[in-house]
Nucleic acid binder design. Structure first.
Lengths: 143, 143
DNA sequence: CCCCTGCTTGCAAAATATTTGCATTTGCAA
DNA sequence: TTGCAAATGCAAATATTTTGCAAGCAGGGG
């Protein structure tokens, strides 16, 4: 059977339809999705919003899904495939979101610095860029 | 008179009490604050929440305040003093937030990369770190 | 210094986002 | 197939943010 279901059972959590669909939907999306968007992509019958929230929260705590904060009203979620580390570029004009795998994402020096000066054990970071996408940059009045 | 009031008037916006207090409160805080926390720090009479939201939204659009996304339920805001660029470290255990001025924040290569490959005009970025603060790291069971 | 005009505020209410309790259903291991 | 624990749907509670409208304040002109 499918890997995610196995992984869930191994961790002691039943592999339910809700869980499976959330993982599939996120895996198929190139963009992080909001809980609402995730629910919208469920094949009928759509689950209740609370089910989506409960599953997202479980999957995040199991490390199978990550939440992404893009300064919007609601949070977004993405699949946390092993070894994937993605960053986002958000267009302030039209809201378009692109994600990319950084070629060089060397924040280890900053992390080491934090460890030394503040004493934190840093385990994750999130890095997002904001600006104007090609279309919006063209449309804009020159500054 | 005080600089922020001047700046507001110059931009054509009356320097009201709400605006002044929001700026003062954010300037005096070493941490980004939520709208609720900002309202709580107003001297009596406290303004309505909607006033706080409206002022934050104006000040953000004028570039005098920045919003900070820390994967929480509500957004946080910080003063956007010229030349200040801060990053955050958030403790997953107790929620403690520290901010620091990065010694080396050279993301210009990544930004150049984005410009070339995706065509975006990148204007801002936000970078946050997550982990365990000294206290929580000590308390935690060894992994 | 006072008056006008427009922008801002308070208040109430709506819209949106997220969480929770409880009865019922489902997953899955024996 | 059966039973138990955990998940789901549903309804309602919370939390967050936005909006409409009438009344009040800021600040320029007289």
């Amino acid at each position: 059977m499918n890997p995610p279901a196995e992984a869930l059972r191994k961790l002691g959590y039943p592999a339910t339809r809700g869980r499976g669909e959330v993982l599939r939907i996120l895996a198929e999306s190139s963009l992080p999705l909001s809980p609402k968007e995730i629910r919208d992509r469920f094949p009928a019958p759509k689950p209740d919003a609370s089910t989506v929230y409960r599953n997202l929260s479980l999957l995040v705590s199991l490390g199978m899904v990550r939440s992404v904060a893009l300064h919007e009203r609601s949070r977004r979620y993405e699949i946390a495939t092993e070894g994937t580390h993605r960053h986002r570029v958000v267009c302030r004009g039209c809201g378009r979101i692109d994600s990319f795998q950084p070629r060089l994402c060397d924040l280890s020096r900053i992390e080491a610095d934090i460890r030394v000066t503040l004493g934190y054990d840093v385990r994750e970071h999130s890095l997002e860029f904001f600006g104007a996408c090609p279309d919006c940059a063209r449309t804009e009045t020159r500054r």
